[in-house]
Design a protein around this nucleic acid. Sequence first.
DNA 1: ACAAAAGTGTTGTTCGTACACCCATGA
DNA 2: TCATGGGTGTACGAACAACACTTTTGT
Lengths: 237, 237
Amino acid sequence: MQKYTGQKRVLIAVDCIVFGFDGQHIKLLLVKRSFEPNKGKWSLMGGFIEADETPNDAANRVLELRTGLKDVYLEQLQVFGDPNRDPVERTISIAYFALIDIHRYENQLNDDAHAEWFLLNEAPSLIFDHNEMVRLAKKQLRYKAALHPILFNLLPDRFTIPQLQALYEGIYQTEFDDRNFSRKVLSTGLLIKLPEKDKQTSKKGAFYYRLNKEEYLENFESFLNFVPNPDKLLSDN
Amino acid sequence: MQKYTGQKRVLIAVDCIVFGFDGQHIKLLLVKRSFEPNKGKWSLMGGFIEADETPNDAANRVLELRTGLKDVYLEQLQVFGDPNRDPVERTISIAYFALIDIHRYENQLNDDAHAEWFLLNEAPSLIFDHNEMVRLAKKQLRYKAALHPILFNLLPDRFTIPQLQALYEGIYQTEFDDRNFSRKVLSTGLLIKLPEKDKQTSKKGAFYYRLNKEEYLENFESFLNFVPNPDKLLSDN
DNA sequence: ACAAAAGTGTTGTTCGTACACCCATGA
DNA sequence: TCATGGGTGTACGAACAACACTTTTGT
């Protein structure tokens, strides 16, 4: 099966940067590494690619294995291929970032996966180049969310506009004008108003909405502008 | 040196989608494959990654080897990892797209590299999944050029605004209003006016400009808007 | 003088922001 | 009835597209 001669073959891994949102803060899902080197240290969830898998298949498999979740929003981020990134043996890693509804995850029997949510800003130091992967994923998340409606993947099926706004504000570490935000969001036609209200956070209550899946898919690549002055908000950290 | 047990190791390649602009049309640089399988067929320029290289190093090396050019604009596109993409042996390819000043290349002694420029729309069918790579690269080029000033990398050091406009029109297969285009471009502060004029294409002559490198680097990540209605122009083909 | 392309000026419209104000409801 | 957050209306300003018009120069 090895027919190109004189070339070195290497291991391929996938690593997933998994983001969640608890209603207040952006979180990052990490696991305790179960084998050497660095056994017991925190890392991204990852795994080696199998013989008959595409990289995307592998990322989905790893994610399902660890969280029980299928059909998660998953996007290829970048390849990390420094020859010395893994001290054991050269391993090239394809990094993915994933957006999941944290509530769906909590209901899964995640048992002994040793996975844990961390506040994005309070995550521990990770093995290898995983810190760099997280940094890049944060950047890409901000970039992409400024242009495309990906953040809905972090919310439950029903959500209110103030919840959506809190999410955007968490991502960009800023506050937006409530009144303009709701009008902007509604004007896209991406939301369908539901009859019920959420009265948890206010006396008046805020209507629930759900995503218009057709519009979402159709307009996914269009540019939108929920985020004012995105230029100034795309910095690191 | 193989210490993770029970995992399969595979070949890693890089493939470069190289774009150029001849003043009229967008072109694609292809090479005749020099070894089996598919020897003699057209393909992207690529090569296997070496033991001590990062993927970026490998892409730069391949590009220099084939074109003689260093310091080329190069961006990681996506990993192509279908298990059967290469019929000989599993090979995972990291695709890069490159933008080069076609005139710099023509002056190089490209000798027996068997490389040739094709009009983007008249390129021959390529081996493996290279057609798919080109399709994706075109899409990414349009996407990114709508937001960031990458197309300057396709032009010589000195260029006129009508030339720049022709480039944008070539990329998006549309025509823009000349008057609005030049004002928009100049308002970014990215260009420095030179004293000479190009009188090739008109009696009045158009001033040459060069890129303000500092501004370019500083504002590279900012969004710009040379392209009206980008939403409608990002389709395939 | 004329043609032809480069580039400036002007105008109406659209879009975004800021902010005053009204609405619904639990306490 | 008051406090609180949800949501609408309005008004100003910046940005943009459309297009009339001037400028330059080779023939």
